[in-house]
């Protein structure tokens, strides 16, 4: 694999993460616990899908085969998507939505901070834009973790269940493969081991303050770096890609 191919795949991974999580949040539109929260969730979804678009556009440029952002989002199959298993997990109740968001926000926050040092100018620019958005996302999800964890007995129980249930997907956030190796050497991508340490300390701190017990690290699910997903992704794509697939000659 050369640097160009690695960079292409790397951009796809980041874009897929944002698109799939943005898709999940967009499913919540008109389903929020209160109108204000509906608007907040939509803001985050818009940020994420916006980031995905920039990343797909860059991926398409790097690839240089004339594909567009929509080709990349709408015309790849399940095994060609590289988003994390965590990002595709169903919304569940509000506690699951918030726990999933929080784990990813903490990751994104430290990740984009590191990506600001990338030797790739475009990724650096993207990171500068994303870090502002992600800082707010993290603030939002942290506030909710505190309120649900230390709110009522019921909310505490629900959040603990959500955290326990999603924990097995968190290990994968930090997995690295050949793509990372190549790009770390070039100074383009951050080393995810460094991010893992920061992630763990931040997550421990917030969970402790919210009176939630941090789960023991056990068996971690894996697969997305090779395009192996949970059954959920197939349905996301079936829904998302339906019009493009049903009318391949149409422009939208």
């Amino acid at each position: 694999m050369d640097t160009k191919e690695a960079l292409f795949k790397y951009c796809l991974r980041l874009a897929d993460n944002n698109l799939v999580l943005g898709h999940r949040l967009s499913e919540l539109c008109s389903n929020g616990p209160i109108l204000e929260e509906d608007i907040a969730t939509t803001n985050i979804a818009l940020d994420l899908i916006g980031q995905a678009r920039h990343l797909y556009q860059y991926a398409a440029e790097v690839e240089g085969k004339g594909r567009t952002e929509d080709d990349l989002a709408y015309k790849r199959a399940e095994r060609e998507f590289y988003n994390t298993l965590l990002s595709e997990q169903p919304n569940g109740d509000f506690a699951v939505t918030i726990a999933r968001q929080f784990f990813i926000d903490v990751f994104d926050y430290y990740f984009y901070k590191e990506l600001l040092n990338s030797k790739d100018e475009r990724l650096k620019e993207l990171a500068a834009r994303a870090i502002k958005e992600v800082t707010y996302h993290l603030r939002h999800s942290t506030q909710w973790i505190l309120r649900l964890g230390d709110g009522t007995e019921e909310s505490h129980k629900r959040l603990q269940t959500a955290v326990d249930g999603l924990w097995m997907y968190t290990g994968e956030l930090f997995e690295m493969n050949e793509v990372d190796e190549i790009l770390i050497k070039e100074g383009i991508a951050p080393n995810l081991n460094d991010i893992k340490t920061k992630w763990e300390s931040k997550v421990s701190e917030v969970l402790a303050e919210s009176t939630i017990t941090k789960p023991e690290d056990g068996w971690m699910q894996t697969g997305s770096r090779k395009g192996m997903h949970s059954e959920h992704l197939g349905y996301i794509l079936a829904e998302m890609q339906y019009l493009q697939r049903a009318y391949p000659d149409a422009q939208w």
Partner: peptide, 20 residues
């Protein structure tokens, strides 16, 4: 105006609703 349980959330909700 917005509805919020406390001042931190009021600030966030105000940001999300009124500065789009």
């Amino acid at each position: 105006s917005v509805h919020a349980p406390d001042k931190e959330m009021a600030l966030q909700n105000a940001r999300d609703v009124y500065t789009r």
